[in-house]
């Protein structure tokens, strides 16, 4: 269970959110400027809340009343960014292996093979990152996050930088990811179609507040109302 109760002031913008979710894929939906990325950065530990609590199950990651803040590298939370953020000085294999090295995990050839097959990236392993298409970069970024064996995976508009064809190419991989790995996900997007395919629960954010929370069916009227 993911528990989020945070308040954060960012300039003129204020984020004030309280959610508890059991969902395998929790969709964070809203127009740009709704505070989706700030919220995900707080969950990842990249941003500290002014007040509040972040917890996965019984494991508290932030509790401002106790002055507790677990830094990002100790959270075991994977993060797939919109712009992939592959390391340009490493090749694809080294990028994929980075999280395992940093977490000092033993080499797990079964996990490696599973992720490579799942994402269909076996033919890309020897490439430099500059030789990848946008869709390929995003698949490598997914694989890199998964191979660090996270307990939660954050995806911040992972298809946002891709055109419609590329999106259609990646979405099936995300569905497989949901169905074949046990890793719970928080999926940020402003595209209701992505959430209808992926999400088991949906949070609609508007100007830093939770406007609605429920099953994917709440998207039908929210999307129309928000015009996204």
């Amino acid at each position: 269970m993911l528990r989020i109760e945070v308040i954060k002031q960012l300039g003129d913008f204020s984020l004030d959110v309280a959610i508890r979710t059991e969902g395998r894929v929790t969709g964070l939906f809203g127009s740009s400027g709704a505070g989706k990325t700030s919220l995900v950065n707080i969950i990842a530990g990249l941003l500290r809340p002014d007040r509040g609590i972040i917890a996965i199950g019984d494991d508290v990651l932030d509790d401002t009343s106790l002055n507790l803040h677990i830094p990002p590298h100790r959270r075991r939370i994977g993060y797939v960014f919109q712009d992939a953020r592959l390391f340009p000085h490493l090749n694809v294999t080294q990028n994929l292996d980075y999280g395992r090295r940093m977490n000092r995990l033993a080499y797990d050839s079964a996990a490696q093979k599973h992720v490579v097959d799942l994402l269909d990236i076996g033919n890309l392993l020897d490439r430099r990152t500059g030789q990848l298409s946008g869709g390929e970069r995003q698949r490598i970024a997914l694989g890199r996050a998964l191979l660090a064996k996270p307990r939660l995976l954050l995806l911040d508009e992972p298809l946002g930088a891709l055109d419609a064809d590329r999106k259609a190419e990646i979405l099936p991989y995300l569905v497989r990811l949901r169905d074949e790995t046990g890793v719970p996900m928080v999926y940020v997007t402003h595209d209701p179609d992505e959430l209808r395919r992926l999400a088991t629960e949906v949070v609609v954010l508007e100007r830093g507040r939770v406007q609605r929370f429920g099953g994917p069916d709440i998207l039908n009227d929210s999307a129309a109302r928000l015009r996204v």
Partner: peptide, 25 residues
């Protein structure tokens, strides 16, 4: 710095981020 952030979400502490990302770049 976004690459350094990505490294930290993959489990790299500040010292590792410096040696594996900042310094090589």
């Amino acid at each position: 710095r976004r690459l350094e952030q990505a490294a930290s979400t993959l489990g790299a502490g500040p010292w590792s981020v410096f040696w594996t990302v900042t310094l090589p770049l």
